[in-house]
């Protein structure tokens, strides 16, 4: 029996027009089929949102894209490379170019803001001088509107500040793609809107492609060019906010009413 695994090398195409291409993705946990033949494409430089009900598999989808969950079938291509059969070393290379903003921020409680920001740099083995690291930290904090918070602990920050610091940690590696998992969960509507506008600013400054997982229509309206409707585990519809809002399909309509 041949048990040799053929791992792909992560080699993103520099001129790829599609940042993320998902084809026939199937994910199930036991008898629970979360995603069924889910397919869609995120063009480079664009911002898409995936809208779906709680428990519809939005977070599972985004975790498949970052390689935290292995799909049962289907392919996920990041800039032309299928990442579903990458080994851990190649996955790390992909993750250096793909930022992930966690729903719960996932800031390390025992570390200061600065240490949180430096962590991905150190762990990915990126060789930088102390001055370069200082500059990257300062730049990331300025870009999320929180300069001077380097020495604060996560426990000292408000919900909105934590979200911004988590975003700064994502930005420190200057990713080409940013995945946002419920970026406004737990925030008041005003702070949620601020985060939405910040996401737009970040996309412009860093020229990233973004995929936002959310059920917050305000945030999606601000931050996403197009919306992917995730219903019954499939890509039910794709359109702009206004197109989908005008839809007469009851399943789509129920999100906008």
């Amino acid at each position: 029996m041949n048990r040799k695994k053929n791992h792909t090398t992560y080699a993103p195409a520099a001129d790829a027009e599609i940042a993320i291409q998902i084809s026939n993705l199937d994910v199930s946990f036991g008898d629970n089929h979360v995603l069924r033949h889910f397919s869609f494409e995120l063009p480079a430089g664009k911002s898409y949102a995936v809208l779906g009900k709680s428990g519809s598999g939005k977070s599972v989808l985004i975790k498949c894209i970052i390689g935290l969950i292995k799909p049962n079938a289907g392919t996920i291509q990041i800039f032309g490379t299928n990442i579903t059969d990458l080994n851990s070393v190649e996955l790390d290379k992909m993750r250096m170019e793909t930022g992930f903003l966690f729903q719960s921020n996932a800031l390390y409680d025992s570390m200061t803001v600065r240490e949180n920001l430096e962590f991905p740099l150190r762990r990915h083995g990126i060789q930088k001088t102390a001055a370069e690291v200082d500059e990257l930290v300062r730049e990331a904090l300025v870009n999320v509107g929180l300069p001077g918070t380097d020495n604060m602990m996560p426990a000292e920050l408000s919900g909105g500040m934590k979200k911004r610091i988590a975003l700064a940690r994502t930005l420190i590696l200057k990713p080409k793609i940013i995945l946002y998992d419920e970026p406004t969960t737990g925030l008041d509507p005003i702070t949620g809107r601020e985060i939405g506008h910040l996401m737009v600013d970040i996309q412009k400054k860093y020229h990233t492609s973004s995929l936002v997982i959310s059920h917050d229509l305000n945030c999606i309206h601000i931050a996403a060019d197009r919306i992917v409707m995730l219903i019954d585990g499939t890509c039910y519809a794709i359109g702009t906010y206004d197109e989908l809002k005008k839809s007469t399909d009851l399943k789509i309509k129920s999100f906008f009413d």
């Binding site: 970052i66 993750r95 250096m96 992930f100 729903q103 719960s104 996932a106 409680d109 991905p120 990915h124």
Partner: peptide, 18 residues
Amino acid sequence: GSMKVTEQIDAMEVSGTN
């Protein structure tokens, strides 16, 4: 446990750490 439920363990994995 607290790191697990606040996704800090996943964040470590995403940050190139086993």
